[in-house]
Simulated assay, not measured.
Amino acid sequence: MGDAGSPFSAAEQGLGYIFQPRFALLKILELSESSAVFLEKEDDIEFISESGIRSLGSLKHKAGGDKLTNLSTDFWKSVRIWLAYYRKTGGIASNGRFLLFSTAELSEGAFLSLFTESAAGDDDRVEQARAVLATSTSALIGKIREELDQLSEDELNDFYSRITIIDATPRITDLPALINLHLRTIRRESRTAVFERLEGWWMDLAIKMLSGERKEPIYGYEVSDKLSAIAEEYRNDNLPITFRGRLPDGQIDVANDPRLFVEQLRILDLSATRIRNAIIDYYRAFEQRSSWARESLLISGEIEEYEDRLIDEWSRYREIVFEQLSDTGNDEACLVAGKELYRWAEMETSTLRIRERVTEPYVVRGAFHILANASPRPRVFWHPRFLDRLQQLLGIAA
């Protein structure tokens, strides 16, 4: 991004592009769940009410201190867009309403104040608009004046009556706090994380709409459902799952990965696919824990207590599986026992949850791999003789 003071800076333009979807999220949260929104269809933003009324909104994110004057192109360019829609949809029979959202403030005494939400009436709009337009020598304004002159007096009165200006609209940096007002049922310490996840999901929908991948509007109930689902993950008996489907950066090298938990699996002679899955589970669990820690979602000592539970259950099953092995047991029997112990950890430990409603499998599977990767001595192992082999290789006391 260019320097804020540079004549070549595109900072305000860039903010305007980001402002659009974030502002749309705020408005859809304010509207009923049956409402819907389009981006960049008939205008910057378009709201559809349950009754079918379409409100076309022009968004103007202006530099600080900008003023909205009688001949501001921000207003008259929007009028041209709205006029085209008004005529296309039947004039007085049109289902359109027209909104200008601008972060700029109206200039003192501007006739545009007749279009604000607090204006008492619209009797003077047509005449004052004609008077203002007549003072302009701009070619653009001239074209708009000609198009307006094609409307009858009744149509002009009707058209102008549909326009509302919302000046001093909150700036992009103010929107998160306003969106958070709709998150009051969520614990205060979790609201920032919930907002970030909701906005991330919303931005993905916006990109799909702008790219043409999504043709239908986004409905208010979709936002409510998603917000509810995200909020559920921040309850006391749950934790957010944000690494489902994620993969480590770079290529997964099953044959040469030097980590201890991978070596343990290679000793069991597992397939490359199973070892690759284990590497992915380790990555997701490790990154997920880091995310929980960054968001301060974990209770002090919670991870340590959880790992102690896993080790206790692992040691109990290990004793069952290794019970029939003797010190001189053959290698094949040891391999079978090790595979069975690992199969149990991979497939039969779904009830060993860090919290009751955290059911994502990679949390448990990855936790076992984290324990199997502990240095200098793994806290869990699979092959009955792995610790002896490790002692020989690294001189670690078993």
Rank of each mutant, 00 (worst) to 15 (best):
L106E: 06
R97M: 07
L106G: 05
F101H: 11
T103R: 00
S118Y: 10
S113L: 07
G121E: 15
V126L: 07
V126T: 13
I81Y: 01
S94V: 05
I92P: 02
L114P: 01
R97V: 06
E108S: 02
V79P: 04
W76L: 10
S78Y: 00
G96E: 10
T116E: 11
S107D: 09
L112W: 00
F115G: 13
D122K: 15
N95L: 08
R87G: 00
Y86M: 09
V79T: 14
S118T: 15
W82L: 01
R80A: 13
E108C: 01
K88G: 07
K88H: 08
F101M: 08
G109F: 01
N95D: 15
A119P: 07
F111K: 04
E117V: 09
K77N: 15
T116N: 04
R97E: 14
A93K: 10
R125C: 13
F111A: 06
F75H: 02
A84G: 09
S113A: 15
V126D: 11
G96L: 08
G90M: 09
T89L: 03
W76N: 12
L114W: 00
F101K: 05
L99K: 06
T89E: 13
E108M: 00
K77L: 09
G121K: 13
L83C: 09
E117K: 12
G109N: 06
W82S: 05
F75V: 08
T89C: 05
F101A: 12
F115N: 12
G109R: 04
E117A: 15
A120E: 15
S78H: 00
I92S: 08
V126A: 12
T116W: 00
F115R: 14
R80L: 07
L99D: 10
I81D: 07
S102V: 06
T73Q: 08
F98D: 03
G91L: 02
Y85L: 08
Y85Q: 14
V126Y: 03
A84E: 15
A110G: 03
F98M: 01
Y85G: 07
W76R: 11
T116C: 06
S118A: 15
L114Y: 03
N95F: 06
G109V: 01
N95A: 09
A110F: 00
A120Y: 07
A120Q: 14
A120S: 15
T103Y: 02
S107L: 02
L106R: 01
